[in-house]
């Protein structure tokens, strides 16, 4: 049996390696299961993977689940400012009743999770450091994710929406003065060449994005028992690797920026609380209003220690 896996990253990216581990392990198990990886958005565009996945036209994908927030608004909780504090907290969230509730939503779309995983991100400023809400006031800012846009707008930033590939030029020419996205995107788009300050994810971080390896549920159920077992065992291995590597990414990105001569700033615990208070009034509030069982889901997430 051949399964097709699509993702948007280069073959050096941690998320490709996660997929590759699953593919290699399954192949080694010798259960007549072959995973063909289509990386670097060679098959589908990043935001257009969830629809074919849910309709069974694609078997597997690794993607930020919030990309599908338009199909299942509940997924917006997987990119919510301040909801996740650090990588260990993220791992606990992945094995909580909150995640079970989300997986129930995925099941509605015939989708299931094979590998859980969160990646963190930070802020860059063209002229100054961004650590607390006051810092973004009046700045043209590009945020990654709807909830971040709402929170930053609440902090008085002006939101400019554009593709992450445009960030470099926009900062260079001054169209943008601040941006927020994942550690790996900051590095791969070489943003360190154009900014003066970087606030990476550290002991606390605001920006965590859930980026699981998903599979079409019917496709999984169509496999025989040996294949299913092999797939689940491979996924468990990949998940352990994912968590370890995710922690290393933030430090690695900070190192790249520091080497490029960019100032590094740190978000203090008070800063984090200030952002979180702001997020409660803006993005959390908007989420609860928009999603029918939003409050319950949010409570489930907040209940995770």
């Amino acid at each position: 049996t051949e399964l097709r896996l699509s993702h948007q990253w280069s073959n050096k990216d941690i998320r490709h390696q996660v997929a590759q581990i699953v593919a290699d392990e399954v192949a080694a198990a010798d259960v007549d299961l072959d995973i063909k990886i289509f990386g670097s958005k060679s098959l589908f565009k990043p935001r257009e993977q969830y629809k074919p996945l849910s309709r069974g036209q694609l078997d597997m994908t690794v993607l930020p689940l919030s990309y599908a927030g338009g199909q299942q608004p509940a997924y917006n909780l997987t990119l919510m400012p301040g909801l996740v504090k650090n990588h260990d907290h993220a791992a606990r969230l992945s094995n909580s009743p909150f995640m079970e509730a989300l997986e129930a939503k995925m099941a509605e779309d015939d989708v299931m999770v094979l590998v859980h995983g969160y990646l963190a991100g930070g802020f860059v400023g063209k002229d100054k450091c961004i650590t607390k809400p006051e810092d973004v006031k009046g700045l043209q800012t590009r945020a990654a994710g709807k909830s971040f846009e709402q929170m930053l707008a609440g902090a008085g930033a002006s939101i400019a929406s554009m593709a992450s590939s445009e960030i470099y030029n926009a900062i260079q020419t001054g169209v943008l003065q601040a941006a927020n996205t994942s550690s790996s995107s900051f590095v791969s788009y070489r943003i360190y060449e154009q900014v003066s300050c970087y606030t990476p994810a550290g002991d606390v971080a605001l920006w965590f994005m859930y980026q699981p390896l998903l599979m079409n549920k019917s496709a999984f159920e169509g496999l025989n028992e040996a294949q299913q077992t092999a797939l689940l065992e491979a996924s468990a291995k990949a998940e352990a690797y994912y968590l370890e590597e995710a922690k290393k990414q933030d430090a690695a990105s900070a190192k790249v920026f520091a080497e490029a001569g960019v100032e590094l700033a740190e978000m203090s615990a008070e800063d984090f609380e200030a952002w979180r208070t702001l997020a409660m009034d803006t993005s959390y509030k908007a989420f609860v209003e928009e999603v029918k069982d939003g409050q319950e889901l949010l409570d489930l997430a907040l209940a995770v220690e």
């Binding site: 043209q140 846009e149 707008a153 930033a157 002006s158 939101i159 400019a160 929406s161 169209v175």
Partner: peptide, 14 residues
């Protein structure tokens, strides 16, 4: 809106 008024531009691109 963005350059003269320094305001948010949320819906235009889309």
């Amino acid at each position: 809106v963005r350059f003269v008024l320094n305001g948010s531009t949320v819906w235009q691109t889309e």
